[in-house]
């Protein structure tokens, strides 16, 4: 089930156009930072809209607070790669779903140690392809370099990878199959690309759907039946 984990819908009025494009391209859902009443909801055309929170604050304390606050209302929580201490903290925290590669890419890199921590807590590296679309020539080669290095570090550490569009308009969205081809450019094989587009996003969604359920108590503990209080 392909889900685009990063679609930048500017406002609620623009949501329909993105949803229509998602259906045309074959997505079953997409995640957006648009504030919604529910963590995820099915839209009229059958596509599922997931609420996403990008934690763009500095310092571990501020990030901890932001993640705590967002966990109960967001299906997807992403922390951008930046300060290494924050990235390592986020990689270790199982409440964080994605470590994303931010744009501009200056000074962005994924450390081996961060990738290993992320692999252990099943936090995925999110690579949005949007920076590759707006540039060409030498500038594109610089973007490709950073993204390929991050991908290779994640692969070596066994960290899951998620490929998303990062689109800010419907026409910059790409189909799941198209995203798989970009994965090849980043150094993934076809199987790895498919996993990054079809399997990993869906796994994150299913995991968090369970977590957001009122019957969820903690990892491995959930209420299967409620007794009669009388």
């Amino acid at each position: 089930m392909p889900i685009d984990m990063n679609v930048k819908v500017p406002n609620k009025e623009g949501l329909d156009a993105f949803a229509q494009m998602a259906v045309k391209l074959g997505f079953t859902g997409f995640a957006s930072t648009l504030s919604m009443s529910d963590p995820f909801e099915k839209l009229e055309n059958g596509v599922t809209l997931l609420t996403r929170t990008d934690v763009n604050v500095k310092g571990i304390r501020a990030v901890t607070r932001a993640v705590e606050k967002a966990r109960s209302s967001s299906t997807v929580i992403s922390v951008p790669l930046g300060e290494s201490r924050v990235a390592s903290w986020a990689a270790e925290d199982s409440r964080v779903d994605l470590l994303s590669v931010p744009y501009p890419l200056k000074g962005v890199s994924l450390r081996k140690s961060t990738a290993k921590l992320a692999a252990a807590s099943d936090t995925a590296l999110e690579i949005s392809i949007a920076p590759l679309l707006g540039v060409s020539g030498l500038m594109r080669s610089k973007v490709v370099k950073v993204l390929r290095e991050a991908t290779q570090t994640a692969l070596d550490a066994g960290m899951p990878i998620v490929l998303s569009s990062g689109s800010d308009s419907p026409i910059t969205m790409r189909s799941p199959r198209a995203l798989c081809y970009v994965g090849l450019l980043l150094g993934l094989d076809w199987h790895g690309s498919e996993k990054a587009v079809y399997e990993n996003p869906d796994r994150i969604f299913e995991r968090n759907k369970k977590r957001l359920s009122p019957d969820y108590v903690g990892p491995g503990v959930e209420i299967v039946e409620r007794g009669d209080p009388s």
Binding site: L25, L132, L133, G134, S169, I171, T172, M173, R174, S175, R177, A178, L179, Y181, V182, L184, L185, W190
Partner: peptide
């Protein structure tokens, strides 16, 4: 095939028309 598809997918506009290439 793979290189050609990747190149086509990375096209963002053609002569002023914004495009999205979808291999089916």
């Amino acid at each position: 095939l793979d290189n050609l598809m990747t190149s086509a997918v990375l096209l963002s506009s053609i002569d002023g028309t914004r495009v999205s290439f979808e291999p089916k």
